[in-house]
Structures are given as C-alpha cells and as structure tokens.
Amino acid sequence: MKREINVQTIGNAVNKRLYWIPLALLILWTVFPLLWGFSASFKTYAEVYQVPPRILPRTLNLRAYNVVLESRHFFTYVYNSAYLAITSSIIAVFVSVLAGYGFAKYKFRFAGILLLLILIPRIIPRASLIIPLFQMMSALRLLNSYPALMITYTATAIPLNTMVLTGFFRGIPQALEDAASIDGAKLWQRIWYIIIPMSLPALVTVSVMSLREAWNEFPFVLALTTATRMRTLPYQLFMLRDAMGIEDWPVVLAFTVFTIVPILTFYLIFQKKVTSGLVSGAIK
C-alpha cells in the first residue's frame, strides 16, 4: 500500500513536469526563426554559407548594419514608418476613446446596431480592400500621399480599439463620474480626469495594437503608393528582397532587425498589460 502511494506520487510528479516539453517546444518554435536570422545579420557574407551551420556568429560583424544605415533613403523609410504609425495611432486611439465612452456610458437608440457597424468591419479581409481602396484614393487624387495611408491605418485600427475600450470603460464605476458631475465636471473633464487615468492598461493595449497595425502594414502601402519617397520599412524590405540577384543575406536580415526591434521594444515594456488586454478584447 505504502509503495503504491509512492509510485503514484512519482507518477504525478512526472506528469506535472510534462508541461515543460510543450513549453520548450513553444520557446524553440517562437525564437528559433528569429534567432537564426538575427544571428546571421552579424555574420560575414561568407559565414552565412558555412556548413555545418553555426547558431551564433563567430564575431560581431557590423558590416550589414552599416550597409543598411548608409543605404539610400533609409531614414526616409524610417521616418515614413514612424510618422504614419504614430499619427494614425494617436488619431485611432483618440477616436476610439470617444466612441468607447459613448457606447459604454450612454443608453441611446440604435446603440446596438451602431456598435455592430463599427465592430463588423474588423472581420473584413484587409488585403481584399486594396483594389477598391486604390480606386477610391486615385479618384480622390490621394495616391502617394500620407493622408491616404494615415486615414486607412486609422480606420483599420478603430474597430478592435473601440471593442477593447468599450469593454473596459463599462467596468469603471459610474459613481465616480456622478460625484464629479455634481461637482460640476463637464463631459471632457470626466473623460480626461477620471476615465483616462483609470484606463491606462486598456489604453496601452490599444496603442500597441494600433502601432503594430500601422508599423507592420504592407498590402495598403503596396497598393496606394508608387513613389520611392513614400515607402515604409516593410515595403522597402519587400523591394530589397526582390531587387537583389544574389541576396546579401546579412544585409537583408539586418534590415529586418531594424523593422522588428522598435515595435518589439515598445511591446516588451508594456507586455503584461498588453497580453491581458488583447485577450479580453478578442473574446468579447
């Protein structure tokens, strides 16, 4: 009897440790593609071809990064990406805060239908919008312009933002606002001094989501721009891979690192808040 219990405890202990296998797989699966590319961006041109492969570079060779930094228009692309991502995210978050507040705190006619009208477009295939959008922007003479991309990025970020924020605002007790109202606080004061400070986790989540959308976006910028000066980092990365006959892999990969690092850093700073916020938004 005693032995049996012992065997069972050991069995349980083994079973409880078994999660390490999928966990290790998860880490390998997530990191390896990135690590293999990241490490190669520090390798020399020849080292990349070396068999057997080395996971880590022999020396930290910065040639590829220099090539990228000195390449023509590189900082124009960085500027375009950053400018579009930041402006469209600010507009998208601002607009979604207003809408989320409206949906969360008021009862009004057609509220349900109007909320659906904002949320349903979330399921519209983004890539499939490129043909009608191209037609629309060319009719408006907005091809090759910042506004065309800014408007589009803002619009694609709003549905999910509004969803997350509406859910979050609903959880903020009405009593706080009522008290403020009695003290004479106006609508914008209640939003600014009560709602915003209490919603920082949700605001961080929607900011990261909006920035990610715009920073990484590719189909729209491909369809709506043709001029070199309008390219964003993902677009130029696409061209880079396309343009080279024999690919200079370290350079392509160094460029890739430049596109990943800023958004990843931003995300990792706020990581805890984003994961929970994202999920609550996705599930509702």
Binding site: L26, W215, P234, L278
Partner: peptide, 20 residues
C-alpha cells in the same frame, strides 16, 4: 508575453525569416 512575439513581427519580416 513571450508567446505573443510573432504577433509583433510584420508579415514581410516573417517571410524573410522563413525564407532564410
């Protein structure tokens, strides 16, 4: 948080990584 990392990487960058 770590699990979500590929979500932050653009489609183009993913393509480059897997091509490599």
């Amino acid at each position: 948080g770590f699990t979500l990392v590929p979500y932050l990487v653009s489609g183009i960058a993913t393509a480059i990584m897997f091509r490599f």
